[in-house]
Amino acid sequence: MDSIIFDLDGTIWDSCDTVALAWNSVLKQNKHINKEVTKKDVQNVMGLQTPEIGKKLFPELDAYTREQLMTTCGAVENKYMEQYGGKLYEYVEDALKQLSKKYKLYIVSNCQDGYIEAFYKYHQLEKYFLDYENPGRTGLSKAENILLIMKRNQLLNPVYVGDTIGDGNAAKIAEIPFIYAQYGFGEATEFHHVIENFSQLLELFE
């Protein structure tokens, strides 16, 4: 193994409180939308791409209105992330510091452009990662973005760490091992290894 590619939400941090806060600030300004998003709502759509999130949370809206709303929510969310951040899972920074000494680290997340940058800015963890990708920049699926990172960085033997069945499917399509972060938001049934907390990656890759 030469590298580790990470999912972000549900794997490295929990940003649901901040996401809900950001989205509700937008919804309050839209008088035709009488809805408030809860933390549970956000948890239930973590890992999905933005268009899918919009369909799940706002099925009553027409496609154009929904797209405009999600674009606005994403932009406001990025600003909130820069200001308030999210909750890093236990042991994350210490483990990243140790792992980065031995492996090349990357992030591939199903988020909008600017989200990973906001994560870096608030938590100051950019120094541990060599590259990142998301559909907000590429328009590609998670599997395609994993393959893009692999090609761009000439990775020969990476693994992917994530917390959902979608992460597992993406790793399978990219033909790389999947490590299931059981402590995250989702569930997975097929994986090569499972971790119950972030620090177990150190034991796994000793």
Rank of each mutant, 00 (worst) to 15 (best):
D131H: 05
K87H: 04
Q124F: 02
K151A: 12
V108M: 14
G114H: 02
A143Y: 14
G114W: 01
K142C: 08
K87M: 12
K102F: 01
Y120C: 02
S109C: 06
L88P: 02
Y89V: 03
E90A: 10
I146L: 15
M150K: 15
M150R: 15
Q112C: 14
K97T: 08
L155Y: 11
Q83H: 04
E90K: 13
E144H: 10
Y103L: 14
N110W: 15
E117L: 09
R137V: 13
N153Y: 12
E117C: 04
L155V: 04
I116Y: 03
C111M: 08
K151F: 07
Y122K: 13
D131T: 06
L147M: 15
E126R: 08
N110L: 14
Y106L: 12
N145K: 13
K104Y: 05
E144Q: 15
N134I: 08
S100A: 13
L125C: 03
G86H: 03
Q83W: 06
A95L: 05
D113F: 07
N153G: 06
K102W: 04
G139Y: 13
A95R: 07
L125Q: 05
D131S: 05
G85N: 02
Y122H: 12
I149R: 13
E90L: 10
K101V: 01
E126V: 00
G136E: 05
R137Y: 12
